Simulated scan of single mutants.
Amino acid sequence: MSIEGLISIKSNYGPEETMERLEAAIKATGMTVFARIDHAAAAAAAGMKLRPTNLLIFGSAKGGTPLMQTVQTIGIDLPLKALIWQDEAGATWISYNDLIWLAKRHKAETKSKAAIHAMLIALDAVASTATTARVAPN
């Protein structure tokens, strides 16, 4: 699956456990979780069916503010978001915006290289923690 500007990682866990692991990993880094949006529950309330689809909105002023100081329009894409969803085969995925793509979108790639790099490392780390089984030490 390839959508421009979107990173998708297959999870070793179901949607709910992936969400719990992601939220815990985000909080462990000191970032704030602002909201959880259950799209499937909203669909059910409207009398419609949707496979598990949950959005987590999170971030840190320390990470986002330097980007917005450089190019204020990037604020439309902040705070960060991660979508935890289940495909038609039952696999669970985490998808999130590629920060390099976002920087290019707002023409901030050269002005905010260090901030973008730091945020990308943190985002990749929490997604990996949420989707990958911990290996026990030998």
Rank of each mutant, 00 (worst) to 15 (best):
M48Q: 15
A61W: 06
D38T: 08
K111T: 08
T70W: 04
Q72W: 05
I84C: 06
I26M: 07
R134W: 05
W85A: 06
G30Y: 10
T73N: 09
T70D: 12
T18S: 06
K62N: 10
T18Y: 01
T92M: 03
V71L: 01
E109I: 12
G90T: 02
L55E: 15
L120P: 00
Q69E: 11
P15T: 14
Y13T: 00
R105D: 03
A118Y: 00
I26A: 03
K113I: 06
A61T: 10
A118W: 01
E17P: 05
H39M: 04
A35F: 14
N54I: 15
G90R: 07
V135S: 01
F58Y: 15
A61I: 10
I57H: 14
D77S: 07
A130S: 15
P66W: 04
A125T: 14
L50G: 04
R36N: 06
V126R: 08
S112I: 05
I74G: 04
T53C: 13
K27G: 06
I37G: 00
E88W: 03
A125M: 09
L123W: 04
L50N: 02
R134M: 07
S95K: 03
L78D: 06
K104A: 08
Y96W: 05
E23G: 04
I121G: 01
I100Q: 11
S112K: 01
A136R: 11
T65F: 08
T110M: 11
K10V: 00
D124P: 00
D77M: 08
G47P: 09
K113L: 13
A28L: 11
L55W: 11
I74D: 04
G30W: 11
K107M: 02
L55M: 15
G47R: 09
E109C: 08
A114T: 01
Y96V: 03
M68V: 09
L67Q: 11
L83T: 11
T73M: 14
A40L: 04
A108H: 06
S128K: 14
M31V: 04
V71S: 07
T18L: 03
L80Y: 15
I26L: 05
K111Q: 14
A28F: 13
T131G: 02
A125F: 11
A46C: 08
A61F: 11
I9A: 01
G63W: 08
G64F: 10
Y13D: 02
M19F: 01
W85Y: 15
A122S: 14
G64V: 03
A61C: 05
A114E: 13
L123E: 11
I74S: 03
T65A: 12
I121L: 12
S60D: 13
R105M: 06
